[in-house]
Nucleic acid binder design. Structure first.
Lengths: 213, 213, 213, 213
DNA sequence: GATGAATGAGCCTTCATTCAT
DNA sequence: CATGAATGAAGGCTCATTCAT
C-alpha cells in the first residue's frame, strides 16, 4: 500500500507516476521492471520513490488494483445495462466489457498478461482476495452454475474449466483484435465481436449439418 | 550450441546439468533465470559452466530444443498411429499428443509457457525456424485450410484465430488437468480428455436442442 | 565524459578519486587498470563509481584530458614567454615546457607513456582530435617546415622522423632527469637542461674540430 | 626456465610453440598475453603447457632470451666484421646490427617494445643480468668511455644519457624504417641507414655554416 | 608425455534501497 | 516533502592453473 505521502501529492504528479508505472509494467514483468526507469520517466528522485512506496511491489500492487477496478467497472457497466439476464446475454455482456476494458488502455491488457506470467503468489493472492475480484468470481460462478442447472450449458464439464475456457477464449480474441485493429474499435464493433465469441463458445467451430429448423 | 566439452561429459553429469536447467527455466523466464542457481543445483563450478556453454542463452536454447523435440515426437507418434486422417481425428491426435507431452514432464509445460512470455525474438526466431517446428506449423495450417475447404469447420473465422483458439484451449485444458491430476494420467485418460476438448472445440458448451436426427 | 554526479561531489572526494586514478593509470596500462583498485584506494563504493562514470574508460579519458591540458598549458606558457620565435628558441621552449610538465607530476609522464603503449585506437583518436592536441601538432609541424625552409635545419631527413627524434630525445632526457633528480628540479635547472638537449639535437654528440671562426 | 619436458619435444612442436608465443608477445604485453591463445595457436593442450612451463612468465622469459640472443649475434657479427675499431665505425656497426636484427623478424622489435612498457622488474632484472646483455652493456660503456677519453665525443654529457640517446635514436629510426619499408630492406640499405643515423647522432639536425674546410 | 575437465579468485557492472541534507 | 549520493549484494563472465586419467 502506497504511503500517505503519495496521496498527499498533487494530482498531476501522482498521475505522472502511475502513468510511468503502467508503461513499465506493460512492457516488463514485475521481476524485470526497474525502479530507475520509472523514476526517470516520471521525473521524481529516487529518494522520493521510497517516500511514496515501500518498494516496487507496493507500486505494482497499486497498478494492478487500478487495472482490476477499471475492469470491474467496465464489466459492471455492461451487466447493469442488461435487460435480459439469461446466460447468453450475460456472458455476452461480460465479453463486451472485457473487450472495452482492453481497448480503454492497451497497457491494461499487457499488464494483466505480464501478471499471469509472474509466479508471485503473494501478489496474486492479494488480488484474488480483493472485494472486486471476489465479487466477479462469485458472479461468474453463479452464472455458470445457474446455466448448468437451467440446462443452458453442458454439465459434463467441470465448471472451473469452463471459467478457464471462457477466460482464455476472451484473451485469444482480444489479442487477435488488438493485432487486427491496433487503431482501436468503434461503436458496434464491440457487439459484433462479443457475438462472434459467444457463438464460438456456445457452438464451437464445427459446421452444423443443416437440420430442418 | 553447447560446446564439445559439454558432450564429452559423463552422462550422469550432463543430465544433472540439463535437469537443473529445466528446473530453472520452468521456474523463471529466461531473463530472470540465473547461471548461479543452475551451477549451484548441478554442483559444477562457474568456470565449468562457461566451458560447456557460451552463455546462459546457449543452455536455454538447448533446453528449448529438447522440449520441442519431445513435443514433436509425441505429436508425431499420435499422428502416425492414426487410421483416419479427417480433421477431427487428426486434431484429436494432436491434442492427445500435447497432453502426453505435458505429462511426460510438467516442467516442459512451464518452460513453454515461460518462453511465450519472454519477448526474446532472437530465440523465438531460431526455434521458429527449426525443422521440427516448421513441419508442425505447416501441418496444422494445412489441416485447418483443408478442413475449411471441405466444409468441416466454419469459414467465418480467421484461420489464425482458429489456431490461437485451438492452442489456448489446449493450454487451458492441460493446466486444468495438471491441477486436477498432479499425480499423473493413466492409459485411457488421454483419450477421454482429448475427446472432451474436441467436443468443446467443435460444438461449444451449449446444449443443443434435440433435433429430429 | 564523467556524469553530472561526479561534478556534484565535494572537491576533496573528487580529487581523491582523480588522484587514485592517476596512480592507477601511471602504474598500469588501460587494459590492466582495475576499477577495484581505484575504488579501494579512493575509498568509495563500487556502486558509486558507476554513478560517477560510465565505465573505466570514462575515467581514463578524464585523466588523459587532465594530463593533456596540463601539458598544453606548460607548453603554451613557455611559448608565450618567448621573445624570439626562431627555431632554436622555440624548440627550447617546448623542451622546457615538456620537462616542467613531467616534473609537475611524475605520474603524468608515466600515464603518457602507458598511453603510447596501449593500442586503444578509440581513445587515441579522441585525444588526437582534441583542440589542444591539434593545435600543438600543427604548431610543431609548421615550426619544422619553416626551419627547413629557412635553412635552419637539414632537409635531408624526413620531417616525420625529425618529429619522432625530437620527441624521443625529449623522453630520454626526461627519464634520465627523473632518475637523476627524483627530488625535483629547481629554477635554472630547466634552462640548463633544455639548453643541453637543444645542443645535442642540433649539433650531435661529436666534438667539432675547432675551425677558424 | 622451461622444464626439461619442453626440451624433450620434437623440434617441430617446440618451434610451433615458440612461434605462437612470439606472435602473442609481439601483439600483447606480458600482462595481456593469454595462455589460451598460445595453446590454441600451437595446437597443444592446456595441461601440456604446464608440463613444459611453470607459467606464462616462464615462456615469456624464453622468448625474450631468444630475442636477446638473436640481437647479440647480429651485433657480434657486425662488430667482428669491422676493420677499424674507432668510435664511429663501431657505433655504426652496432646500428647496422640493430637494424638487421629488427628486420630479421619484426616480431622481435614489437616484443622488445612491449617489454619496455611492462613494468615487470623481475623479468627486466633477469634479462639485464644475463651474460649476453652484460657483455653488450659493458662493451658499449667502454666504447663511450674510450671515445670520451680520446676526445671523439663530448664529455659534458652523462654517459648513461648518451647510451639512452643512442638507443632511443635507434628505435625511432627502426620504427620509421619499418613504416617506410614494410617489405624489408636490401643489401646496401643497411649501410645507408646506419650512416644517416650516425650522422644525426654525431652532428645533429642543424645545418652547419660552411667554414673554409 | 598428452589430454581436457575442474576450479575459484577476481573482474566489471547493475540495481534496489538507505540516509543525510 | 525533495533530493541524489552512498552502499553492497548479486549477477555474468574470464582466466591461469591444477589434477586425474
Amino acid at each position: 500500500m502506497p504511503k500517505k505521502t503519495f496521496y498527499n501529492l498533487r494530482d498531476v504528479k501522482r498521475e505522472k507516476i502511475v502513468n510511468a508505472a503502467m508503461d513499465e509494467f506493460a512492457a516488463y514483468s514485475f521481476n524485470d521492471a526497474s525502479v530507475n526507469r520509472i523514476i526517470k520517466q516520471s521525473g521524481i528522485a529516487v529518494g522520493s520513490f521510497y517516500q511514496y512506496f515501500d518498494d516496487l511491489k507496493d507500486l505494482y500492487y497499486l497498478v494492478l488494483t487500478l487495472a482490476m477496478k477499471s475492469k470491474y467497472e467496465h464489466l459492471k457497466a455492461e451487466i447493469n445495462s442488461l435487460k435480459n439476464h439469461d446466460f447468453i446475454s450475460t456472458i455476452r455482456a461480460l465479453y463486451r466489457g472485457g473487450v472495452k476494458f482492453a481497448f480503454s488502455d492497451k497497457r491494461f491488457f499487457d499488464i494483466s498478461n505480464n501478471l499471469l506470467k509472474s509466479n508471485d503468489l503473494d501478489i496474486i493472492k492479494r488480488l484474488t482476495d480483493s472485494a472486486e475480484n471476489s465479487e466477479i468470481v462469485e458472479f461468474v460462478n453463479n452464472l455458470i452454475k445457474d446455466a448448468i442447472d437451467n440446462g443452458e450449458i453442458r454439465n459434463d464439464i467441470d465448471s472451473r474449466l469452463i471459467v478457464s475456457i471462457i477466460t482464455s477464449l476472451n484473451t485469444s480474441f482480444i489479442e487477435h483484435m488488438l493485432y487486427e485493429k491496433p487503431e482501436g474499435l468503434y461503436g458496434d464493433d464491440y457487439n459484433m465481436i462479443s457475438d462472434k465469441v459467444i457463438d464460438l463458445l456456445m457452438n464451437g467451430i464445427a459446421i452444423k449439418e443443416v437440420t430442418n429448423d
